[in-house]
């Protein structure tokens, strides 16, 4: 194929039309360029492939790896957004971060986020998916699938504002509901109370994301061969046993995928917390994302914010590595 096209890329301008054509940028021309770079057919086979991935590679380099490296560099300086001079402080900001009680508060909140999300989204999503895929619910499952999936397509800003009304201490739906069923003593200022603020935000995420995880599991369950269930049924397995002994092992791959998504999401969460509580009261519901934002755009400590960003990166990277190691695959 290359050989055939090579004839059209010759330097001899015998064919005027093709010479003219060659002056404009066309896929053919680009190909010719690559072939020229290759020199002869052997070299060309060897390198042409790399050249084709070059544009994509450069874009990733420019927009992902370059900012990461630059961010690491930024974290070594103390600087403000509206002043040009940066002061080199070395690793001082990392030392400061690891002595910062707010950082640990935020980290603990992120860990709450991760654990609760794993239980509700990954396990809960799997249960929901299994229930909806069961024969008994075949008829109505499309309806429920849509219902559970709807929150996923609503903007998180809208959702957070919506929950603002639900959590409102005096006119909110939640407190109103609790009073109506006689649990007056349970009512509280959900987002204004240090003990509940972070959980109020976590609850919103569960409500929003469970549908997405459920959808992924439904796809995985649909790929399980029906024979396995039939065999289990003949052996007299109950629905619950079938779930644990057929469904769970069969969707193992997907479980790794969803838990990676959920965990990475739990450590980079920002919107829900920012809109609902702003990290307050005090710093009770601060997460790494909001603390990063505060440091950068409110306190104007850009270097410190970069430091936090790098720590978040390190945490999520570590989680993905551990998970890849555990799953030992990467097929899906």
């Amino acid at each position: 194929m290359f050989a055939r096209q090579r004839s059209r890329c010759g330097n001899s301008p015998s064919n005027k039309v093709s010479a003219q054509k060659a002056r404009q940028w066309s896929p053919e021309r680009l190909h010719c360029l690559f072939i020229h770079l290759g020199g002869n057919d052997m070299l060309q086979r060897k390198y042409a492939g790399y050249l084709y991935v070059l544009p994509g590679f450069l874009l990733i380099l420019l927009f992902i790896y370059f900012p990461i490296v630059q961010n690491i560099q930024f974290s070594l300086f103390e600087w403000s957004a509206f002043s040009a001079d940066k002061t080199f402080v070395g690793l001082a900001q990392y030392a400061k971060l690891f002595h910062d009680p707010i950082f640990y508060q935020a980290l603990v909140n992120n860990i709450y986020y991760a654990v609760i999300s794993l239980i509700f989204q990954v396990f809960g999503g799997l249960v929901l998916a299994a229930v909806l895929e069961d024969k008994v619910f075949r008829k109505i499952s499309p309806l429920f699938r849509t219902i559970y999936f709807t929150p996923v397509i609503i903007s998180i800003t809208v959702i957070a504002l919506l929950f603002d009304f639900i959590y409102h201490p005096q006119v909110g739906l939640l407190n109103g509901f609790l009073s109506a069923i006689g649990l007056e003593s349970w009512t509280r200022a959900w987002v204004g109370d240090s003990a509940t603020a972070i959980f109020a935000a976590i609850a919103v995420s569960q409500w929003q994301s469970i549908g997405y995880i459920m959808m992924l599991f439904i796809v995985a369950i649909q790929k399980i061969p029906q024979e396995l269930y039939e065999a289990a049924e003949i052996d007299g397995a109950s629905k619950i046993r079938m779930f644990f002994h057929v469904t769970v092992p069969q969707v193992r791959e997907m479980t790794f995928v969803t838990s990676t998504i959920t965990l990475a999401g739990a450590f980079t969460v920002f919107n829900e917390v920012y809109i609902l509580t702003g990290g307050g009261p005090g710093h009770a519901s601060e997460v790494l994302g909001t603390y990063l934002y505060q440091s950068a755009f409110v306190h104007d400590q850009m270097g410190y914010a970069s430091t936090i960003a790098n720590v978040i990166l390190a945490i999520t990277l570590l989680i993905s590595l551990v998970q890849m190691k555990l799953s030992k695959t990467g097929e899906e």
């Binding site: 204004g192 109370d193 240090s194 307050g280 009261p281 005090g282 409110v298 306190h299 104007d300």
Partner: peptide
């Protein structure tokens, strides 16, 4: 300075909750 303000405001929120 915003850092002092932040110490004040975060602390006061907690004081109003009876935590500080």
């Amino acid at each position: 300075d915003i850092k002092i303000v932040d110490a004040y405001l975060a602390g006061t929120q907690q004081m109003l909750n009876g935590e500080k």
